[in-house]
Amino acid sequence: MRWMWIDMMVAFEPGHRLTAVKNVSLAEDHLHDHFADQPIMPASLMLEGMAQTAGVLVGSTRGFKEKVILAKIGSATIDADVIPGQTIRYDAVIERVDESGASTKGTISCFDHRTGVWTDIGSTEIVFSHIDNNRSGLNFPKENFVFGENFKRLLNAAGLSQVMTAAGVTGP
C-alpha cells in the first residue's frame, strides 16, 4: 500500500464525482526529509492523491474495463502547506469522457482539527487516456494492471463497491 495516496473514498456520484480523504501522519517516512525541521506534505504527492481519486472515477464510468492512465496535468495549483495532523480531501469531477479518454477537474481541501474548518487550498485539471484506444496504436497487455487489488480493497473499505454495483458499475 506504499503508493496509495488516498486513505478512504467518502462520496461517490456515479459518472460525475468521487471524493476521497487522506490523513497526514508524522509517522510517514517521506515527511522526515520534507523537511526535517518543518514537515509538510509534498505537493507532488497531493497531485498523485488527486490523480488516484480522479482516475478511479474515470475508471468507474466504464466499469473498470479500460486501462486509465494519467496523460496530462493541464494545470495544478496548491496554495497552502499541509502539516501532520491535518486531513486532505480530494474532490474530483468529470468534465468529459469518451472512447479515448477523459478530462477532470479537482478541488483539494484541507481540514484543520484545531479549528474544525475545511479550507480549499488547490485545484487541478487532469486528462486521462484509455490506453487501449491510444492514438499511437501501441498494444498493451490484456489484463487490467491499473485497477488492482489495492484499489479493490479501498473500494470495499469505503462501501463503494456496493454503491458501484448498485449503479451498474463493475468493480475492479
Binding site: A71, K72, G74, R96, G101, S103, V127, S129, R135, S136
Partner: peptide, 14 residues
C-alpha cells in the same frame, strides 16, 4: 505532442 490532441479536442468542445 500526441496526448495534447485529446486535451485540445476536449477544450474545443467546451
Amino acid at each position: 505532442e500526441s496526448i495534447d490532441f485529446l486535451d485540445i479536442q476536449f477544450r474545443l468542445e467546451k
